[in-house]
Nucleic acid binder design. Structure first.
Lengths: 353, 353
DNA sequence: CTGTTAGCGCCTTCAT
DNA sequence: ATGAAGGCGCTAACAG
């Protein structure tokens, strides 16, 4: 009899068993350290020996099929190209890895249909839990369907705008806006200009609301809105017209303002740079503040006052919330699983020289 | 007879078959549009109907088990927190998604042991191919073992430093260094200072080699090395001493240089900012240039001349190379599968006012 | 055209 | 203390 062609080039549990004269189930028991699998020390060694010698590696696909779980977490990330999201994702991954999970990742271009599709695909692959950065719009049908099945899910910045009661991590962006306003007011700045894109999104709306409410409450005038007729990003190296638009706006309106607030650090720094180029003295004539706390806001030459979010803590918390749900099946979602982080004011020379 | 408890809450192919009075294999054939599965239009409809009504979703784990492939690509990314890597990864993911692949991602903290471990885990999960950003050091044993098995792999920046003949995408960093030098020389700048971290890595070494070789060939003196006694990152918001160190160095040595080259854009911009704070006029007294082409190098106030890499093209090419190997099994690695991209000089006001 | 059979690699239960 | 049998959900080959 000739050697039959092996189906897979990798050695499986049966070959290990054959090699050391044991039954596959025994090998399985030893490998998984199953409690009820009592084996003599000698067979143990023989098995571990064979495993090492043959270079056995478990087929996790097969294991998943029977166990129904994959030790894999899904992550759907919008805008993986911006620093806050990247940092959250990195922290999340680090936690997941420490706990033996791998990540099935997809970058969703903020499209509701794509979100649903991706959730399905992830589900088809039997992920054990999902960390979702939900699309700005849409019905989130698949998310809802996951929730009905009590499938472990954590959303980022979802609580305030999704009509789903799921575990969530977010930042109190409204409060962040308030903090910006209070900081500016404390410096005697009341005539605020908001550098925003006309394309609104929840996070930005929250920030602006907090800012404006606080200003008005303090008797300051309603802010002046720049309403950039472009997407907020990319703005540094953005479409040709952006910088011209900003320059013209600043030159025309500089006397109506003593502070500019960006809806993100990049916008704030871009406007600040253009203003400085136009001869405006920062912060003497106009102060600048941003949001997010990206690394570049700390640059030594035009350091930006900003409202920083604790990205690393958010990513870690997201994993923990997910892990909890995975460990105890059918967890009921309680308010304790909906975390709101406080942002932090970082004062730099763009407001205080 | 009471309803028996279903093992899995999800409906499987057997339930669909039962529901529409067909055999599981028939359903499978229809669903996979198998060529040799000729079915009457009526049964087709019945089946598709049942699929829709029952909300059937395939269990990809089971499918993988039999097919031996998972439509999943592994990606091991070092330093997912820096823009170049992020952009490459994003482009790679977009291509992969278009072609029906999902990504199993892990962020490797540049640790050889971790790399090996991750490759194994990915392999255990039966990924169909691997996009690897190899650790700076180590033997890359698992990578080599993959190569022996002719497993589809593409490395990033691996060709020049790994003793493995695998498909690869990289950038001609040496040439990038040459371009920097030539640009500076064309402006009459010969006394170059290199802002580098003492922790060397292949990419940086290449850049420096190209720069120095070109300078020396042109009769310029050997560059002055700053040798920052810190990790290259984070540097903007880095450990307390970094900025002081740079400031002191610049003040002490400014008369010995007419240009500073950073081994990355962040370093270059940090040093440039500190120099400007110290009253040095840029570019009149000292010109500045960086590498990578991150978005912030385009900021309007201190725009940085840089050597930009085509990150998006790299990510796309990496996927294509991987896809090719996956489609035709046992591809022989040819030099055509080892792509070297040319960087591009982007001239900005930090060198030419 | 459609249904039956035999696994994919592993784990769990239940006999021995 | 160990092994045999059955099945996870799906697919491929082969019968009807």
């Amino acid at each position: 009899m000739t050697t039959t062609m092996k189906k897979s080039s990798r050695v499986g549990i049966t070959e290990v068993a054959k090699y050391c004269g044991q039954a596959p189930s025994t090998v399985s028991g030893v490998l998984n350290k199953r409690a009820d699998c009592r084996v003599s020390e000698k067979t143990r060694e023989k098995i571990m020996d064979a495993v090492a010698k043959l270079g056995y590696r478990p087929n996790l696909t097969a294991r998943s099929l029977v166990s129904g779980k994959s030790n894999t977490l899904g992550m759907i990330s919008t805008a993986q190209d911006i620093e806050p999201t990247t940092r959250i994702a990195t922290a999340f991954e680090a936690e997941a890895r420490k706990n033996g999970f791998m990540l099935l990742i997809t970058f969703d271009p903020n499209d509701p249909e794509m979100e649903d599709k991706q959730i399905n695909w992830l589900d088809d692959r039997r992920m054990d839990g999902l960390f979702l950065m939900p699309s700005e719009t849409g019905d989130h049908l698949q998310l809802k369907s996951l929730m009905e099945r009590k499938f472990p899910v954590v959303t980022l910045d979802g609580l305030g705008r999704l009509d789903v009661n799921c575990a969530d991590v977010s930042v109190d962006y409204y409060e962040g806006g308030c903090m910006q306003a209070e900081h500016l007011l404390s410096l005697g700045r009341k005539r605020v200009c908001v550098a925003n894109s006309v394309h609104s999104c929840w996070v930005v709306d929250q920030r602006i609301a907090g800012l404006q409410d606080t200003l008005l409450k303090a008797g300051a005038p309603k802010p002046l809105y720049m309403n950039l007729p472009f997407e907020a990003r990319p703005i540094m190296d953005g479409p040709a017209g952006v910088h011209d638009f900003i320059r013209a706006f600043m030159l025309k309106n500089k006397d109506k303002m003593d502070a500019v607030v960006g809806t993100g650090d990049e916008v704030a720094m871009t406007v600040m740079g253009i203003a400085m180029n136009a001869g405006i003295r920062v912060p003497d004539e106009i102060a600048f503040a941003g949001c997010d706390g990206i690394s570049f806001s700390a640059n030594p030459f035009m350091p930006l006052t900003t409202i920083a979010s604790p990205h690393e803590a958010i990513g870690q918390a997201a994993f923990k919330l997910l892990h909890t749900q995975i460990k105890r099946k059918n967890t009921v979602i309680t308010p304790k699983m909906q975390l709101t982080f406080k942002p932090e004011l970082v004062v730099r020379k763009s407001t205080v020289s």
